[in-house]
Amino acid sequence: MNKVMGRPIPAVVVAFLCVIIFFPSILNAQKINGPIVLTNRQLTEKVKEFYIAGVNDDRAERNAIAILLPTAAPYDKYKIDVKDGAAVALKRFADYAIQPNKTLRPVNIRIKKLKITEEPINNNQVGGKLEIELLFELKKDFGPVKLVSYPATTTYTRNAAQQYDLGVLLSRALEGGLNWFNNWINREADTNIKLAKSVKLIFTDYTEQPEGDTIYYSPKRPLTWDDFKDKPYGNKYVAEVLPGFGYTEQAEVVQSVVVVRISMRVFLPKSAAWVRYEGRNDYALTHEQRHFDIAKIVARHFQQALLAMKIPADNYDGYINVQYLDSYREMNQLQDEYDKETGHGMNGAAQARWNEMIEKDLKEVL
């Protein structure tokens, strides 16, 4: 079984932004004792693909996020944190920025880094740096699917005697991350397989021109004794064929739908078919043709079973693989029953019954 997948599934994408800003309007002459309070902000672009289902704080060290310099002596650094904790504060911020619409894709945010540090530049100035990394993942029943990582760094400079409004600083940084992810998912929604919402299967029957060693099933191309190229084995039967079926697969995402094109291959290798000289008659050839017909019928059962399923976009290949194995077992079982009941063609009455059943089934699947 050969599988040829379509557009490769991308690894987790990483974005990196570095912004140098200076906002005199958010300087504050008073020392910030904490906690840091975020300011509500709504995204400028409409959100139509997702909502924030949850926020997790995955920082390696969950200490207070800010290590700051005071505006007056003593100049020992001190720590402050976000009000209610990083995860709660960010979820509240996200719910205001993006009105939750649970008909859209549920997205979780994992806070991988959130840190504000200050260092003296000279006697009159202090330099600050905000480092943030947000991992966005799609929430699924079987577990989260990583989508994209957003790391960014923002720096600022303040007068040593004036403190910076960190609530505004952090709120702007979070707004920037949500805007960035909104733009990313708008671009990716139609073609990224991780974001696909449904599956469409398209089946075709493979043909080969010119014909080689392998015969691919066609109602217009019945077996002939010239197809039996192998040397005879054993002494129990006058002829034998070994048909099978498989498929090749190509997948692409079109407007959030995984379109899977499956080319069915019901085949019989000439090099695996043999006949004794004394067995070359129409009755024996019909028996061997029925083996090939059974493979075709079960291949169509495989197709029908998949088309009747509601296949999830995030595990379509697993469903196809499982059904293929089930159908192949069905084929082997039917081939064994056929040979057992007909006595490998020696029981004429049983052979006639199977001929009738197989013809009926072929009419339904061809």
Rank of each mutant, 00 (worst) to 15 (best):
K77P: 01
R41A: 00
L178E: 00
A97M: 03
L201C: 12
Q351F: 08
V55I: 08
Y216H: 12
V365N: 04
G244P: 02
D314Q: 13
D81R: 08
E61H: 14
G212V: 04
L223W: 03
Y283K: 14
L169Q: 04
P232E: 06
H291S: 05
Y206A: 01
T117R: 12
G127T: 01
L201K: 08
T214V: 15
F136P: 01
N2H: 14
A60C: 07
E278I: 11
I215F: 05
H291A: 02
I121R: 13
Y78H: 05
Y247M: 05
N332Q: 14
R59Y: 03
R276N: 01
G143R: 11
W180L: 13
D84E: 15
W225R: 03
D190L: 10
N347Y: 12
E252T: 15
G176L: 11
K31T: 14
N2D: 12
Q163W: 10
A299F: 05
A15L: 13
S263E: 00
D227I: 02
L114T: 01
D326Q: 13
G143S: 08
Q351I: 03
V258H: 05
L285K: 03
V126C: 02
L147I: 15
L362A: 07
S171Q: 03
Y217L: 03
D190T: 10
E49D: 11
D314A: 05
A350L: 10
N101I: 08
Y164N: 03
I32N: 11
W180D: 02
R329H: 13
L169Y: 10
T153N: 08
Q30D: 14
A73L: 05
I80L: 03
G177A: 15
Y233R: 15
M1V: 15
D361R: 15
R261H: 13
A64M: 04
H287S: 01
R110K: 14
A189E: 00
A53Y: 10
G246D: 15
Q289L: 11
K220R: 09
D314L: 11
T155K: 11
Y319L: 05
E45Y: 10
E131T: 02
T224L: 05
I80T: 01
N56A: 12
G234I: 07
D205A: 07
N179T: 15
V199K: 01
K102T: 14
K310V: 07
T224F: 04
Q333R: 14
V241A: 00
G279W: 11
V168Y: 10
Q303A: 06
I21N: 08
K129Y: 05
P210T: 04
L68P: 00
L195M: 07
A349M: 09
R7N: 14
T224H: 06
D361H: 13
A349H: 12
K229S: 09
A29L: 12
K200T: 11
Q303S: 06
P232M: 09
E240N: 14
I109C: 03
I132S: 05
D293I: 02
N192A: 13
V37A: 06
I116M: 07
S256W: 09
H301S: 10
L268N: 04
L325T: 12
I9T: 15
I311V: 06
R105Y: 09
E341G: 02
L138K: 04
E330K: 14
K270I: 02
T248R: 11
V14F: 10
Q333K: 14
L325Q: 13
Q351V: 06
N33M: 11
L334V: 04
M309Y: 11
D317W: 07
V12C: 07
A152V: 07
D57S: 04
P35E: 02
Q323C: 10
